[in-house]
Design a protein around this nucleic acid. Structure first.
Lengths: 145, 145
DNA sequence: TTGAAAATTGGAATTATTCTAATTTAGTAA
DNA sequence: TTACTAAATTAGAATAATTCCAATTTTCAA
């Protein structure tokens, strides 16, 4: 069962929404709490299913709206592997993603502190990256199930 | 106008198809030549439009089939930015992609020879990457149009 | 409390892609 | 060459994630 947001998360959410001129709503708060509660890179459908367990009136369209809002506020990252449904990740540390070929599951991969700088350095003059996404795909050993 | 394939490309194609137990067809050859002729990361629709200029009977389904085949043979890479249509890239050198936020255009970014090794090294024990995709998104200066 | 703007909602619409079943083609063996 | 078989192509239908739309509800500031 998903409890409400920890105060710090609630504050981060309210601040981020405020900064972007957006309102705090119980749906946004709940969707955010769903993402924080189980950090397994769920799809919008999965977030919808989990959200309805405690907020049965929430609609799929709202889940999409909330996820887009959270991404827009920088609280959540969208993870796209090929043409699979978008997954959502509330990990704000610098990290990459690894998808297991067999299970399809996605894992966070921590990055050394200077790696992003090094990656940025490979860009030719005149190219300014606002975001950098690093995706691994392969086999992860000894995964449960 | 798209001419036929250079002999070397034709050989690379036939070899790759052969190795994968697939047949050489004029559609596969033509789609490959379309990709090689203008390396601007076209979508399937764009490849379809270009292909029809010289092969008016080719179908969209075949273009999708050929592109999938070429990707499967390792002759072409699929490039996915967010939920945009997949783009196709016949550059076989190790490289990353950069998308300009304003134009949506995608550019190849050469990578230093040891970078992929370094990236692989960030994976924890037990994770084996079969592919690594590095996506930049941002502003490219002084682009024509 | 009230009014306006923003957010939510259910359902329809969109669209890139995949699927299907019929036809055509490529490659092989006689 | 011919005939055969498996593979490839084709047109159009189907799929599925996401977005759009118009109506209702909610938030927040005055």
């Amino acid at each position: 069962m998903v409890r409400g947001l920890p105060v710090e998360a609630k504050e981060a959410l309210d601040n981020a929404l405020m900064e972007h001129g957006l309102r705090s709503t119980k749906q946004r708060e709940h969707v955010f709490s769903v993402l924080l509660h189980k950090r397994d890179h769920p799809t919008a459908d999965e977030v919808y299913a989990r959200s309805r367990q405690e907020m049965d009136s929430i609609s799929l369209a709202t889940v999409y709206n909330c996820l887009e809002t959270l991404v827009g506020c920088g609280l959540v990252r969208a993870v796209n592997y090929e043409r699979e449904p978008t997954r959502y990740c509330p990990n704000l540390h610098e990290h990459a993603h690894f998808q297991d070929r067999r299970t399809g599951r996605v894992y966070d991969v921590d990055l050394p502190p200077d790696l992003m700088k090094k990656l940025r350095a490979v860009l030719p003059e005149g190219y300014h990256a606002e975001s950098i996404e690093l995706y691994f795909h392969g086999k992860a050993e000894a995964e449960n199930s």
